[in-house]
Amino acid sequence: MPKFTRPNSLTDNHNHYCPGCTHGIIHRLIAEIMDEMDIQGETIGVCPVGCAVLAYDYFKCDMIQASHGRAPAVATGVKRAKPENLVFTYQGDGDLAAIGTAEIVHAAARGENITTIFVNNAIYGMTGGQMAPTTMPGQKTQTSPSGRDTALEGFPIRVCEMLATLDGVALAERVSVHDAKHVNATKKAIRKAFEIQKNKKGFSIIEILSTCPTNWGLTPNKAVDWLKSDLIPYYPLGVYQERSVR
C-alpha cells in the first residue's frame, strides 16, 4: 500500500482553512498533479481575494496574488508574456461569479490558454458568510437572514453551463470533493485541464463543489450531506463542454 505523504509541490505551512473545509483537499490535488506532471518549475498560480488569498503560502510554484475578481485578467497578462508556462487561477464563487464576472467571461471567450480552478461553496467565506451569486434559493446567510429570496435577490448562477456556450472554452467540467470517489474524479478533471493547456487547446475551467461548514452553520459531516442533498441537484456534476480541437 502506498504511503500517504505530503506532495512535494505543497509547502509544510499550517493552512488557515477551517475544519471540514475542502480547500485543503483541492490544494493537495493540484500539488499532486504538479508533481506527477513534473511542472512545478514552470507553473505560475494566481490566487484570488477570498479564503484562498493566502494560497501562495501553500503552493511551491511561483504565485501571484490578484485583486478581487481579476485573476483571469492577471493570468492573461502572465500567459501572454510567458506562453510556455502553465498558468492557473484559483477562485471562489464571490470572486469569480460576482465581482469578476467580466474577467472570467472574456478570458473564456478569448480562449485564453489558462486553467481556472473554481471553488464553489455557495457563500462568501472570508468575509463571514454573505450571500454569493451561487447561494441556493432559501439558503440563510449573513445578508439573506431569512433565506435567499429569488424575488428580491435573483437566482444562482450556473457558471459551467454559462461558460460552455462560449467557443473559446476547451473544457468546462463540474466536480465535487465530498467523498473519495469524487475526489479521485476531481483529480482526473484537473489533470485533464492542465493537459489541455499544455496542448494549447484553450480555456479550461474545473468547477468544484466545496463545503463551508463554518458559514453554513453545519458540522463537517452535515455540510457534506447538504452538499449532496442540495447543491448537487442544482449544480449537476458533469462535463459541459469539451473540445479536443479548436
Partner: peptide, 22 residues
C-alpha cells in the same frame, strides 16, 4: 510583442499587473 484589447480598463490594468509580475 503582444497587443491585447481587454474587456475593460480594469481588465487591461490587471493584465499589466500579471505581465509585469513575470
Amino acid at each position: 510583442g503582444v497587443f491585447l484589447q481587454a474587456e475593460s480598463e480594469i481588465g487591461a490594468i490587471n493584465m499589466v499587473y500579471g505581465c509585469s509580475a513575470t
